[in-house]
Amino acid sequence: MSPRGVALRLDGVRRVFENNLIVIEGMDLLVETGEFLAILGPSGCGKSTLLRLIARLAEPDGGRITLAPDDVPFQTAFVFQDAHLLPWRNVLDNVALPLELMGEAPAARRQKAREALDQVRLLDAVDRYPAQLSGGMRMRVSLARALVTEPRLLLLDEPFAALDEITRFRLDVQLRELWRRRRMTVVFVTHSISEAAFLANRAVVLTRRRGGIKLDRRLDLPEERNNELRVDPRLAAEMKTLLGAMEEEEQ
């Protein structure tokens, strides 16, 4: 299947907070079309700031961020650390929200929301409210909400960090399968070395300060990932490499 993503390019990106703290300084990064990139790094290294800049939720203080092609509005979707659903809307209306904000007709957006929910296997929960869902289900709704616009660029900011391990494993597999089917470009920020290695085709470890790149590695793992891979020596070897870079940075 041909990639339906975008290429993402960062040239000399700089971001300074209001207290003059330089969070990212001169970052260069090229993410290829349809690539699944994981970004790892110690706390406070600017991972989430980087995602906000890519999503254009914040402006860089220097440098450029470009998408290619950049011919379609709203081609970026964002999945936050928590599900952040609208509690007064049921599951179907939460998932349809991006399309509603983009001005899509009610019948069409509901149909697309059902399709997105089908992809995360939540069609039987369309009428439920967020308070009636488990943490894992809420996160799947959040994922469906991001997928409903068929984004070319999917940004995820530690989306499964608050979930139990079994749910997390299940969602990792689902996310990887969704990416394989759609081939959008994915940038996945995480603290978890095992999650980064399991999900991504390429992993970048950021330095503790100013968003420098400590390690940029293409992961030598099979295309199809399932839970058997979690005990595979190849995954362990990749994790060891990433861990080494992280430990050096922690020291």
Binding site: F78, D82, H84, L86, L101, M102, T149
Partner: peptide, 19 residues
Amino acid sequence: ALRDLFRLYGASTRVTLFK
């Protein structure tokens, strides 16, 4: 985060207020 979500999809100030 929800304000960011509304901004991401181009919601106007009025739409953000009411929705």
